[in-house]
Simulated scan of single mutants.
Amino acid sequence: MENKIVPSIKNVLIPVTRDDHSFKAVKFAARLLAPLSPKITQKVFLIHVLAPSFLEKMASNVDIRFRNILESPIFRNIIQQHIEKEVKPFLRQFTQIFKENSFEGEIQEIITQGEPGKEIVNFAEKNNIQSIIMGRRRRSHAAETFLGSCSHIVINRAKKQFVYIIGQHVREEGCPINKILVAVDGSVPSLKALKEAAALATSFPDGVVKIAVMTVIDPIYLNKDSEEEKEAHEIINAARNLLLELGIKETNIDTFLEFGDPGRTIAKIADEEDYPLIMMGRTGKTGLKEIVLGSVSTRVIHKVQKATVGLAPM
C-alpha cells in the first residue's frame, strides 16, 4: 500500500530584494507552488530586510550621530519614504507574479530591519515556516541591503526548514522540477531529502516528475579491501525501494553510482543532464569513510550553474 506523504511547503518564506536573483526565486516558487495551492501550500511570505549597511548609508546623509539617528523622526521619515518608493513596488511586483501563476494561497509582504540572515531565520522559527526559497549570490557588496553571506547564514542556522538555493536557470514551460536528482549517502538528512523529493513528485500528476538517485564514492577511500562500493550499492537499492513504497513508479526512477569528488560530480551531472533540482542533506554521515560529506552541499551550491539546490533539515 502506498504511503502518501505531503511536501514541507505549507508555509514558505522567500527573502527578496530588488534584483534578478530574487526575481528568479519568486518565479521558481510561483511556478512550483501555484498548482499545489491552497491544498498543500497555504501561505507564502515575501520578506525584505533593511540591513545595517543600508541604514548606515542612509544615515550618512543626515547630520546626526549614528547611534541617535535610528530613533530620530527625520531618519524614520527617510526610511519610510524609501520603503514607499523603492521597497513596496517590487514587493507588489513579486506578489503579482504569484497571482499571474494562479496561486490561490495567502501572500504576505514583510519588511523589517536587521542582519538579513538572522532576521530570516528568526522569522522562520516564529512563523512555522517549513521551507525557505532564496536567490543565490556569488559575491557580497558592503553597500547592499541584502548581503551575499545571507544564504550561508540561513543554510547553517535554519536547521528545521528545507532551504532551496535557486540556480541560474528556471524552466519556463511545464513543471519547474520535472527531474529531481537526489544525492544519498545513507545519512538521516539525505533520507529526509529523498522523502521530500518523493513528496514533491507525488503532488503532481503521475509521470510529470521523475527522480534519479545517485551516490558518489571519492576514489581516495577505495582500496582492494574497501567496502565502500558495496555499501554504496546497498544505499542506492534502499533508496529505490523507499521511493517505490512512497508511490513513485519504477518507470519514474533512475539510479546510478559515480566515482569522483562528490561536490564536483553532483554539480557536473546536474548541469550536463539538465536537472532543475538537486535534493540532498545539509550534513552527511559521520566518520572518515562517509560517501557524501556534509561540506559537499556547500561545494555543490558553489559549483553548480543551472540547477536549484534543495537542502534537507539537519
Rank of each mutant, 00 (worst) to 15 (best):
R92D: 15
G135C: 04
R76F: 05
I166S: 00
A312E: 00
R137M: 13
P219R: 05
V304A: 11
R18V: 15
A238T: 14
F123D: 04
I74W: 09
I165Q: 01
A197F: 02
K88L: 07
T95D: 12
E109W: 05
M214D: 15
K126S: 11
Q113K: 13
L181Q: 03
N223Y: 09
V300T: 06
I278R: 02
L244V: 15
E228T: 11
G263R: 08
H48M: 03
L311A: 04
N237F: 15
K159V: 01
I74S: 09
P7Q: 03
K85P: 05
S60Y: 12
E106I: 14
Q130M: 04
H233Q: 05
E86T: 03
G260P: 05
L55D: 05
A199T: 02
A198H: 01
G287T: 15
I301S: 03
T215L: 08
H21K: 09
R240G: 12
G174L: 13
E109R: 10
F66Q: 03
H141Y: 12
S131Q: 11
S37A: 11
G247C: 03
D20Q: 09
D19N: 06
S151N: 04
D225N: 09
I236H: 01
N241Y: 04
A51S: 13
R264P: 12
E125K: 15
T265D: 14
R67G: 15
G260R: 06
R136P: 11
A51R: 05
S140T: 13
I291E: 12
A34E: 09
K57W: 15
I64T: 09
I253T: 06
H233S: 05
S60T: 07
I291F: 14
K179N: 06
E125L: 14
T265L: 13
S295W: 06
Q93C: 05
K159N: 01
L242Y: 08
M58P: 04
D206H: 14
A158Y: 10
G247D: 02
I236A: 01
I74L: 10
G114D: 11
L36S: 00
V184N: 04
R92N: 15
K192I: 07
E173L: 11
D19E: 03
D218G: 06
T215D: 10
K179I: 06
A25V: 07
K4H: 10
K4G: 07
E273S: 10
P189D: 07
D185V: 06
L36I: 00
S149C: 09
F23C: 08
R92P: 10
